[in-house]
Every structure is written in C-alpha cells, then in structure tokens.
Design a protein around this nucleic acid. Sequence first.
RNA 1: GGUGAGGUACUCAAGUGGCCAACGAGAACAGACUGUAAAUCUGUCGGCGCAAGCCUUCGAAGGUUCGAAUCCUUCCCUCACCA
Length: 430
Amino acid sequence: MSEPSAPISELAWRELLFQHTEGLPAAFAAGPVTGYCGFDPTASSLHVGNLVPVMGLVHLQRAGHRPIALVGGGTGMIGDPSGRSSERTLQTLETIAENAAAIRAQLAKFLDFNGPHGAKLLNNADWLAPLSLLEFLRDTGKHFSINYMLAKDSVKSRLETGLSFTEFSYMLLQAHDFLELHRREGVSLQIGGSDQWGNITAGLELIRKTTGGEAHALTFPLITNADGSKFGKSTGGGSVWLDPARTSPYKFYQFWIGADDRDVSRYLRFFTLLARAEIEALDEAVRTAPGQRAAQRALAADVTTRVHGTDAARVAQEVSALLFEKADPQGLSDAALAALREEIPFAVYAAPADGPALSEGIDVYECLTTLGIAASRGVAKRLLEQGGVSINGTKLTAADRVVGAERLLRGRHLLVKKGAREFGLVHVPA
RNA sequence: GGUGAGGUACUCAAGUGGCCAACGAGAACAGACUGUAAAUCUGUCGGCGCAAGCCUUCGAAGGUUCGAAUCCUUCCCUCACCA
C-alpha cells in the first residue's frame, strides 16, 4: 500500500463530507490514523441506509488508514436517542448478540482484514458488559456537566416529548467507547452520520480530559431522495436489506436500477468505488442519454456485486434483462430460472377438468388464473384478445388459447407475461 | 329521543316497473408510444361460455307483479338538523 493519504479530498468530491474537526487533515497527513464507526445491532441485518458509514470506513482503508467497525452489542441495550422522536424499545440480550454476529458477517464483505492496516471488528459489549456502574460514574460521568449534555441536539429535541435517563446516558456510553478504543487500539477518529456529531464530540471531550490526547470527528451528510421519499425504502415500502434472506439479490439490484435520474449521480459517488472519471462520464450519460440509464446499471451492478457477489449479481442482471428488456427466455441459466421462481408467481400446472387434456396442450387461461395474473377466465380471455399475453417472449393472439408442449422451456417451464411487467412461471409436470 | 335525507359495481355518481349487467367520471388493466419515467391516444373493465346465451348482483330478508335497482313490509346501517 502507498503512503497514507488524506481521504478528505476523496470524500469531498464524493459529497460524503458533512463536517469534520479542524485538525483532521493534519492528522491524516501525519500518518496512518485508526478510525472507527459504530453500528447498532437493532436488526439482524444492515440496510442500504447503513452503507454510507460503511463506505466511509472503506475509503479510510483505501487511503491507507486503519478502520475499525464497532458493533454496539452493549450500547444496543440502551438505545441511541439521536434522530429519534420516541423512546426505543429495549431488546433482549440474546437478540442483540445474534444481531451483532450477523452484522459482523456483513461488514466483513466490505473491509480487508489482512495486512498492516487490516480492519478490525469489535463489539462494545466486551467492555461495557463488565463495566460496573460505580466505575462508570467515577471515570466517565465525572467529566460531563449536565449543562453540556442538555445542550446536545439529540437531548434538546426530546425534552418536550420525554427522554428516559437510560437514553440520556447514551452519549456517555458512546464517549466511553471512543476513549476505550483510543486506549486499546489507538483510535483517534470516529466517523458517523451527521446526527452523530453530538455523541462523537462528547467522546473527543472525554479523551481530551482524561488522557490529554487529540482525537477527531468526521460526519457524513444525510441521504435524501430527490422525490422527497426516504432513502432506502423499496417501492413496496420495506427497507432494503443487505441480508439476501430479507431482500433478495434481484430486489436489491432492482432497488438501485430504479434510482431517480436526479439521484443516481450522487449514489454512484456514495455507494461505489468507481473512479472520478468514470463517474463523471456516467453523469454525462445521464444528461445526454437518460433512456439508456447507464448510470443506474453501473450503480446496481457495482453495489450488488460487492454485497452479494459476482454470481448473484449476474443472476440478478439476467433476471432483470428477462423481465424488463425482453431477453430471450430460452437462454436462461438454471440459476436464473431458480431465482425467477422466488421473484414471480409460480404454479404447477394441472389440466382443468373441463378444458383441454394435457396431451392436447397447455391451457393458457388456466395458467393465467392459477398464477393469479387474471382474476377469472373471462379476464384471461380479454387479455388474450387484446394481445396482452405472451408466453416465453412470444405474443399470443386470441387463437392461441392452447399452446403445444413443444414450447416448454427447459425443465418444462412456461414463462407467462401479462402486459409490460407482470410475470408468472408455470411448471408443467410431464 | 324527534325530524329529514340516504345506502347502486374498486371509488364517486346516474338510474324511480320492462329498452338495466345497470349512463357518466375517476381508478385499474391491456394496446400504441416510451427510459423498468411522465404525458397522450385507443380499447377493456360481475361470472361462465367460441358463440347464442345462461347465471349472480343495485344495504338485508320477505312480498306485489308476466316482469323490480326501481312498488310494498320489516330489519340493519350512514349522514344532516332539532333536543
């Protein structure tokens, strides 16, 4: 690796810099800096909204510094009031431990754990759990005035609606973490979302008071969507998770493909490691040929590959090409066919009692109704008459009510399509 | 509790004895166009049926009639005004 360089300029052009302490550029210039970022184990998976701080750590490492990801197994038991309008529900110890383990595994995909500035994953439960209350009050609490704590935005905004002593104490725990990491690992930088500024600076304060050492803070901007919706929600409204069991790689890929033209340039900067020249070329492509959506494709391919791996990303692309770009279903890979079954309605065909026997062919009405694509046979019929149905990529007419078995795809499958984007997959037993 | 108005298909809303599966608008769906965008234009829009046609619907249940969403009875519900 090259000499540690300041990631400041890199973060700046990527528009990832919200604010940082004054001495940070000098600290970066002086040599490798160890920086950390905390992740709440409130769920068993990270979601795309967590990706900004994750990428922050990645940039730190790429610039020759040493990143530490801290899973909040201890603080997760308390709950950060920052950016929250109401008290958090506490979670059980077991849930938090499980979540922490799952998040660790996801973070491992982004960071390099080998080499002189290899990343490290820590859990603050390791030192917070054994910490005694008296010890905490003497060593940490003593350094903070209530006035100081009340002045923090995270607290101030909650004075009206109410805030428990537990959540009020949160910033001290986070400060304690920072100090602990400063001592154990030589950490001198904490990064996080812009809402973390208050908590981070509490840590700087504690480090300065107890050790006289200098430490720094760096925060990222809040991600916004151009249309005013909340970033990280799928069209259905649910969060987009990194866990493939929660959000399939195909849906994950589609989330990025669907990025608004007005957002895609920023997202490329935030979430990919593409070089500046490449991203600027894609910006240009959005301006000159928005219909190509080259930027969205690049974004989706890059992020999906990093999170789910090359194979899963390829399958997601293949399925997307089939469903949205009229790719030939005959060329579908087995993996894509298997993925498809999970994404679109799937049914096993049974010849209807009053319809054509299986030997005569496959009844299209039956396929449409059992898949739930058409509410009734009458609707199915009208669809066919209007040219709204195609099978394996070929448009059917009113005369094609029964299709021959020779049209089945590998594994005796039939890809049924209604209109532009509603699909179903039928398996026809031999 | 009293008086008045009303309950029609996904929504709004016509229809007051046969021409009503029920005007019209919106939504939705399909086709053309398109960028997995938006707009626009065309078509469809209770079920079964290739069709002729049949079946089930107009708050619910009964009744009158050759025939009812439309008339009568009872019941249920909503809204408005008065107390």
